[in-house]
């Protein structure tokens, strides 16, 4: 029977704290970059102009249909060959996760915008608004409300995906757990601790999406 001993993990809280900071950093970068790029791509997917529609569609299809880990590894090992500069693990992982999240959130934005009643457009145009004004003032505010649960889900996915950065040795929680496990020979406690940290952080967020979904279902 294994004797659980978390003292060896607790002795390395500073290492875990550094990891947690790394996780939060990459999460913040990918959340902002992914969801804002996603809006642009989503508008492109919604556009009737081919010059916008086709590149956006190609982008979405490509990044949705390849694994994130392959994208991260491509940006880390393959891209620098074409570039005159080197790419840090943070940059490569952020690129992979952001572009992937942009592709997935683009479909959420598109669906949300499409779900808004045509009359809203007509009304806005009748008041003399341009396409962009109507989009910004009338359509997006309504669509965003409907998209909130799906976008929160995306945020949770991004948080989970951030662990993939450890595959290219970016310092985040899982990478620090690997380090602690190899120095103290305590993989059981180290990986359990990290799993618990993720669960404690994400569980309230998941519950929040349930609440948002229920509230939305009630409102509509």
């Amino acid at each position: 029977m294994h004797q659980w001993d978390f003292a060896s993990v607790l002795a390395n809280t500073d290492a875990l704290a550094v990891g947690a900071l790394g996780t939060l950093r990459i999460f913040a970068i990918c959340l902002v970059a992914g969801l804002s790029l996603g809006l642009l791509v989503g508008l492109g997917r919604y556009s009737q102009r081919r010059a916008f529609y086709w590149p956006a569609t190609a982008f979405v299809e490509f990044f949705r249909n390849t694994p994130v880990l392959v994208q991260i590894i491509w940006f880390y090992f393959a891209l620098p060959i074409l570039m005159p500069f080197s790419i840090s693990p943070l940059a490569a992982a952020s690129l992979g996760i952001s572009l992937n999240s942009a592709a997935f959130s683009a479909e959420i934005y598109r669906g949300g915008i499409q779900s808004i009643d045509r009359g809203q457009w007509d009304g806005a145009r009748a008041l003399g608004m341009t396409f962009l004004q109507a989009m910004r003032r009338i359509i997006l505010p309504q669509a965003l409300k409907r998209m909130t649960p799906a976008l929160t889900n995306r945020a949770i996915e991004i948080f989970k995906m951030s662990t993939l950065a450890s595959a290219i040795a970016y310092v985040e929680l899982l990478q620090q757990a690997k380090l602690i496990a190899s120095l103290n020979f305590n993989p059981i406690e180290a990986y359990t601790a990290v799993a618990v940290i993720f669960f404690v952080f994400l569980w309230p967020l998941v519950q929040l999406t349930y609440v948002l979904e229920r509230r939305l279902a009630r409102d509509e």
Partner: peptide, 23 residues
Amino acid sequence: IEVFRTTPPLVQLFWFFFALPLI
């Protein structure tokens, strides 16, 4: 269900590969 939906798959994989065999 909740645990496996809310923890990253890579953490789960490491746990099953490095921790479980010892237990």
